[in-house]
Each structure stands twice: as C-alpha cells, then as structure tokens.
Simulated assay, not measured.
Amino acid sequence: MAAWVSVSDWSGVGSPLSGSVNFVGAANYAELVSGGLATRDFGIALRNNVWYVLLVVPTQTFLSLFLAVLVNQRIMARGVFRTAFYFPSVTSSVAITVLWLFLFSASGAVNKILSHLGVTGPNWFHDPTGVVAALLGLFGIDGSRTLTGRFLGVTAWEWLSGPSFAMTAFIVMAVFTTSGTFMLIFLSALQSLSPSVDEAAMIDGAGTWTRFWRVTVPQLKPTFFTVITLGLIGCWQVFDQIYTGTQGDPGKTTLTPAYLSYQAAFSNQKWGRGSAIAFVLFAIIIALTLLQRWVLRDKDDVRARRAERRRRRQSRRRQRSSAQAVTAEGIMEGAGR
C-alpha cells in the first residue's frame, strides 16, 4: 500500500485504491532531488541524520563493548552495575526527552556544570550553529563564503559544519539510552566464548590488550554485525525524540528523514512525498546494512569458499578433459578397424 502511495497522487482523502487516484510514476521521488524547498528540506534532513549516525553508532558500539567487558569482570556488586547501565534503555524515550530538555536548557544543569569549569554553555535547543563550525570559528575559520557548492540544496559548508548543539544533545541522549541494551548483547557474546583460546594465547605470552584485540574481538564479529545493524536502523529511524523535543527546530537542524516523512504526509497532506521519503530511507538502511556486512565478512571463510570453487572448477575441467580423451581414443580405434 505504501509503495503504491509513493507513486500516486493520493491526497489522503478516501481510499488510495479508488479510481480517482492516478499513477504519477517517480514524480514524488523526483521532487526530492529536482530542486526547490522539498529538495532542500530533504537534503537538510539527510545531513542531520548522517552526522547523527556517524557519531552515535561508533560511540554506542564501543561504549557498550567497554561496559560489557567491565561488568564481565569479577567485581563486587556487578549485578547492580548491569542494572544501572541497562536502566536507561527501558525508560520511556518521551520521558527522557523531556528530562533532556530541562538538563540542556539555557539555565539547566549542563550549563551550570560548564560554568563551574569556566565555560559559557550554548543555548542548546535554540542555537542552529553546527558544532564543527563553532569550533572552527574559535580559530577564525569560516567556510560559508568559499564552500558554496550544493548537494540536494545544501551547501558543502553546511554539510561539513557538523550537528547543531540541539542535535548534539540528542546524540548524547541516544548513546545514553541505547548503550545498555547493546552492553547486554556483548555481555552474552563474551560469556559464550570458550576460555581455552584465551588461555592458549596467555601461555604463548600474549598480554591482556593483545589477547583482547587479537583473540576476543575477532570472535565477536557476528555480535558487532548485530549491534551495528540495530544501531544503524535505530539511528536512521529516529523520530520520537524529535517529535517530542524540537520538531525539527532550531532552523531545521534537528529535522530527520523520518520526521520529515511524517511532516510531509500528516501536516502538509503530501502523502506521496512522505511515502517516497520513507522508501528512500528504507533503501539507505538496506544499502548500509549490506555494506557493513561486506566489511565485517569473515575473510578466511571467503578465501576458503573461493578455494573450494576453484577446486570444483578444476575438477570439472579434468573430467571434461578425460571425457574428451576417451572420445578421441574411441574415434581412433574405430578408424583403425
């Protein structure tokens, strides 16, 4: 149904399968890349979400692995630590978003802490400045006049200026609320590993870091694939924090494709465009999942499969050569008679 809506002119009134609804082909998709306000909004949403993914997925992955290794040690009250680390993951995202709005307000706890450190905190949810642009501005660097090339209606400087302070607050919140869940996944994987391999490496004289990096981490590749895949899906579908917190403000710097799809369909009654954005988002998630599956593939297993395919091809060639030789021999014997 959603696929049909994305290629039709359905206005949201009546059934999308009624005779009054016309097929418009890729027109709704073309609006996203052909220029104009729709293209710029889509480009801004992609820019925001790209920074969100680049900062959240690696951070939550390595932080959750660190927490899993930490609570996997024989320490006192490790059950309490596991519960404490996991608790934010089971708390309502709406409730945490409201809490975040208070913590990161202009007079909130975060700016109070920064003031004690001699730093003037920004007006987090009202400042559209990118974090990277703000840091470069401290050194007098401003690329807004030189990096003017555009992609999807967004200049190169806007792409490189980083997430806004508001989106940075959401990035911190995402890491805070999801690391506990992924910690449990890594913890389960760590506890399922056989200690014999680690003990053998220890006997060979490998240090703690070498054993972890060379022995433990390679065995966690399937877990990394699971965690990164779930992280990518969650980051590209971020919606409830934006809807509850900022609704794309300030200056559309917290606008995401998921929220833009909702806004186009339910607020602007552009149901075809909203569905098209959703399917583009789906394609992005599938492409990134396949990419990271290729990156995290087991190279030894790939080489073994290639060697097995070569062996089979060589075996088939030898069989064909043997069959041709037998046929030629039969022909020669027949000619001799």
Rank of each mutant, 00 (worst) to 15 (best):
M1F: 11
W4K: 10
G12I: 06
V13R: 13
G14V: 01
G14H: 06
G19Y: 08
S20N: 15
A26F: 14
N28I: 02
A30K: 08
A30Y: 08
E31A: 14
V33N: 02
D41F: 08
D41Y: 10
F42V: 06
L46C: 07
W51E: 05
Y52R: 13
V56A: 02
P58A: 11
T59W: 01
V69D: 02
R74D: 08
R74I: 01
I75D: 03
R82Q: 15
F87D: 00
S89F: 12
T91P: 10
S93M: 11
F102C: 00
G108T: 06
N111F: 05
H116R: 11
P122V: 05
P128R: 10
P128T: 07
P128W: 00
I141Y: 06
I141T: 11
D142A: 10
R145W: 08
L147P: 08
V154W: 01
G162Q: 14
F170C: 04
S179K: 04
T181Q: 10
F186C: 12
L187K: 10
Q191T: 13
Q191Y: 08
L193D: 05
P195S: 14
P195F: 04
S196R: 10
E199G: 10
I203W: 04
D204N: 10
D204R: 03
F212L: 15
W213G: 04
V215D: 06
P218H: 00
K221T: 12
L230Y: 13
C235E: 00
Q241I: 07
Y243V: 01
Y243R: 15
T246G: 04
Q247W: 00
G251A: 11
G251V: 05
L255V: 02
L255Q: 09
T256R: 05
P257T: 12
P257L: 01
L260P: 08
S261M: 15
A264K: 14
A264R: 14
A265D: 07
W271R: 05
G272T: 03
S275V: 00
F282H: 02
T289E: 09
L290H: 05
Q292R: 01
L296C: 09
D301P: 01
R305I: 07
R310A: 10
R313P: 00
Q314G: 12
Q314H: 13
R320K: 10
T327Q: 15
E333P: 13
G336Y: 11
R337F: 07
